[in-house]
Write a protein that binds this DNA or RNA. Sequence first.
DNA 1: TAACTGTATTAATTTAATTAGTACAGTTAG
DNA 2: CTAACTGTACTAATTAAATTAATACAGTTA
Lengths: 129, 129
Amino acid sequence: MFELDLRSRAPVYEQLVEKIKELIINNVLKPDQQLPAVRVLASELTINPNTIQKAYRALEQRGYIYSVPGRGSFVKPAVPGNNMARLRALETELVKTVSEMRYLGVPPQEIITRIKMQLSEDEGGKLDD
Amino acid sequence: MFELDLRSRAPVYEQLVEKIKELIINNVLKPDQQLPAVRVLASELTINPNTIQKAYRALEQRGYIYSVPGRGSFVKPAVPGNNMARLRALETELVKTVSEMRYLGVPPQEIITRIKMQLSEDEGGKLDD
DNA sequence: TAACTGTATTAATTTAATTAGTACAGTTAG
DNA sequence: CTAACTGTACTAATTAAATTAATACAGTTA
């Protein structure tokens, strides 16, 4: 289900968090869908169950999944306008990324174009001013 | 000159790299401007000179500064279209950030607007289609 | 020459991630 | 009811990385 880079400086549990978050955001894992059990995923990835639990706990704290003792862990349906702290962080991230692209010589026009392409893949929304 | 968070899980030298990179990108530190000497910055921040050197070495490897033994470390003038690997990483980052903003309920229009605002702060370029 | 620069090296310490092993309580299908 | 699953908790040992410490060397500069 996942691929890990054990040589990376990023902790395995953080890599897991990022991979799973990505699957949720891109709707590969659907709302209320059950995630692999801690022990199952651990044996699949040949790592310790404690590491999986640490990742799941982090995902729960960040609002991406919920866990029910005895039943399992599930994808938490997104509540629009809920995670304001995360939105602020993303805004900051966006500013930094765009600044660095400008610094590296990417024309503003191209940056806008790229983002519009990305947004139009999601849904056929109207993006023209 | 800098502020560090010793409680952060991010290594001090990586925090330094990010802060200095930001100052270079935002043109606070000008091209060929000299950076604080390793020992000077170390005593200012009350951390070990080796940690500063590690940060400077990383910045040099990533193409943001250059160091001359005996003379000092300096801001490396940007060469547009040079750092393609970094550009690809930024593109990926941008896609991820935008995806998550969409996931959290931000309308596409607003994302575009925010980025245009950010870009117009840099220079009075023409951004309208 | 004296005082500055970056750089290198080795050892000790500190901290975090990871593994290992075990245990407990809630859930569920047979 | 029971067996097999679930998440969760806890302690101890190990591993890996960051950081500090203490020197040392060579190039630069006033």
